[in-house]
């Protein structure tokens, strides 16, 4: 958190897990651009990350998979629409359906929605502008594998960089998601108010990130992996990765 910025030196697995090193896969599509940031975010926490090429139809042995940001396949047709049919996504769907941990970021969120692994869709920002700026995220549900380490009431200061990040789902779906605790993060002002002017893209209910009903697949439009070291402006994004690592350690 900004107010409790931690040392930016790489943490040891003992600090972020319980002695075991976890192996993260980071998918790479033509046009991915946050893949290296994702690898860095995991390495900063003392765990391992490996790239998985979009043509690979095997994920290999992985504890969790990150679907990174970028403009996969040029985002032609719709953002994420073509990526979802790549060979690696067929393996990812199987991994997710077997309970594997999956986190999508930005374009990764769009891909997971297109693939039907998450409800809803991401459409053009209401402002029609590409938004590249820092936002504040309020955590709605602290009881998930992706949020459990985030301190209650804490805001995360992380960047967004997208033109199609306006989350949409119909009212029935939204109500189900809300009742089931699937809305994980909302855009908030610097003092924690969830309001229109804090919302960079016009998402319904100010939604920044969600998870599936089983709570093993989550995604968000902002970039926590670009906010993992104080040196580059914020390390608040670490809390999401720390949450998952903590959860996997508890399960191990």
């Amino acid at each position: 958190m900004s107010t409790t910025a931690t040392d930016t030196a790489p943490a040891t697995p003992a600090e972020t897990g319980q002695g075991s090193k976890f192996s993260f896969g980071v998918l790479q599509f033509p046009g991915s651009n946050s893949d290296q940031d994702c690898v860095n975010a995991i390495e900063v926490l003392g765990h391992e990350a490996h790239y998985v090429w979009h043509k690979d139809d095997q994920l290999g042995h992985l504890d969790a998979v990150l679907v990174p940001g970028g403009f996969s396949y040029g985002d032609y047709l719709r953002a994420g629409a073509i990526a979802r049919f790549s060979p690696v996504m067929q393996s990812l769907a199987e991994f997710a359906n077997n309970g594997g941990w999956v986190l999508g970021i930005c374009n990764g969120f769009q891909i997971l929605c297109e693939a039907g692994l998450l409800p809803g869709a991401l459409i053009r920002n209401r402002s029609l502008q590409f938004r590249s700026e820092f936002v504040h995220l309020a955590t709605v549900n602290h009881g998930t594998p992706f949020t459990r380490a985030i301190p209650e009431g804490a805001l995360m200061r992380v960047p967004v960089a997208h033109g199609e990040g306006c989350y949409f789902a119909d009212e029935t779906t939204l109500s189900e998601m809300e009742a089931n605790g699937q809305i994980l993060w909302q855009y908030a002002t610097a003092d924690g108010k969830v309001e229109d002017h804090a919302n960079p893209n016009g998402s319904v209910r100010h939604i920044a990130g969600i998870c599936n009903a089983n709570k093993n697949v989550a995604a968000l439009m902002p970039h926590p992996e670009r906010a993992c070291q104080g040196l580059i402006g914020s390390d608040d994004g670490q809390w999401i990765f720390r949450s998952l690592i903590e959860h996997m350690s508890a399960k191990a």
Binding site: I123, R124, N125, R126, S127, L128, C166, F168, D170, G202
Partner: peptide, 14 residues
Amino acid sequence: TPKKAVLDPQGKAV
């Protein structure tokens, strides 16, 4: 075309 219930900011701008 976008579904009726979906925001269409491009349509509004035009």
